[in-house]
Design a protein around this nucleic acid. Sequence first.
DNA 1: TGTTGTATAATTGTATACAATTATACCGTA
DNA 2: TACGGTATAATTGTATACAATTATACAACA
Lengths: 236, 236
Amino acid sequence: MDFRLKAPSHSDESSLRQQVFNHILEAVLSGRFKPGEPLIELKLAEELGVSRTPIREALRQLEYEGLVSSIPNKGVIVNGISETDIEEIYAIRELVEGLAVKWAAERISEQQRRDLEETFELMCFYTRKKDYQQLAKYDARFHNLLFDSCQSKVLRHILRMLMRYVEHARIGSFRVTERAEQALEEHRAILEAVLEGSAEKARDLMTMHIKNALVNLMEQRKVSEKRDQAKERDQA
Amino acid sequence: MDFRLKAPSHSDESSLRQQVFNHILEAVLSGRFKPGEPLIELKLAEELGVSRTPIREALRQLEYEGLVSSIPNKGVIVNGISETDIEEIYAIRELVEGLAVKWAAERISEQQRRDLEETFELMCFYTRKKDYQQLAKYDARFHNLLFDSCQSKVLRHILRMLMRYVEHARIGSFRVTERAEQALEEHRAILEAVLEGSAEKARDLMTMHIKNALVNLMEQRKVSEKRDQAKERDQA
DNA sequence: TGTTGTATAATTGTATACAATTATACCGTA
DNA sequence: TACGGTATAATTGTATACAATTATACAACA
């Protein structure tokens, strides 16, 4: 496949570094680059049709976001993520996202109220239609709006890194499907609490939402594992 | 002043990028580079006697750690930090560092127990001697050991970013001095709770420790402000 | 005087060249 | 065959050159 950038693919005017970052990010999150796999600058540069400079900068950014590890003078490899990691990530999420919605309930602006309600309506719509592609998109937007509503640069920064870990943890699972209806109701409850300014209630609801999401994720991983093992048996 | 690197200053064998990073970091944290001040790559490169490449990489790292902001095609400027920011940082610290010591109490290794106790002894020593330079050094080591003891790569990553913010928040304050004795007792209590494996107790003690540290920091800032205002009056 | 346009300079973004380091393959020797 | 050493290749680290973008100064004009 030809991944060369600056093609008029979506006529992006963002910097090459950002495009390269997005490309490698997508490759890692989709599992095309597997854990332990070394990322060679020159190879990536040729593949994407750019020089090593933007590649290096993108790799550094990926390192700071925790997706790859870099060993000086040797190179960078894709990070794997263990079950323990996932449990830890979700434990941290409970606290930090809990704080985020608490602050959001206290500080949200009028415009953000409207945006959140609008986005939630779309989530309802796509849940009914069972269009999980679109649902995932608006789910992400919902959470981002919520995080912006807490009006905190610092918390936003922490959350950004944390959410990258979460995305990484989700590799290979189906994301929504059967839990979609339940998740929607949880989102509805959180939204209501935020809009009526019930900070503690919003936090507790978010904590519970994340607990449930973890249980669901772990179950999905078990399913995926069994499916993979079956596949291996078939090949043998 | 001549800041050129690779001089046999401390015969560091770390990469230039890391040296440059440390240099700029120190300049920002010490207040030599002031909030809003633009950081020009070429100027820094000449000042430090290296090319722009390691400068750029160091600036990117500083950006990810929240100390500077970069606007594409324009440049990077030093970030300021408001009172609100500080309060938010400390609120996040309460949760995250609280979780950290909780896990540390559950997971600490034998070697780490010994290291922590040893470091704490040194903190006692330098508190008695009122050598606040050395005390600050071992205080930082104490916290780092504590964070390592929770054996969590993810939490370590979050804490790293958070502590950078904390250091940034502390700009211009005296750090320890009069609160040293009280802080030492708080540290002693946390250490005991961790060593005896009382996870919840350790977390609550850490929460209280951070609350106190915030109060102290805010008071010191008020003192600094008044001092600065007096200085300005004198100059006028 | 104030505004706008344009030339110039300053600065960042990207590509390439070179240096330093690390990995690999091959050969000789016991 | 197993081991060690050396030459070679592969890869990262740094410097420099060039392109693209943005800021600045200054003149022309209303």
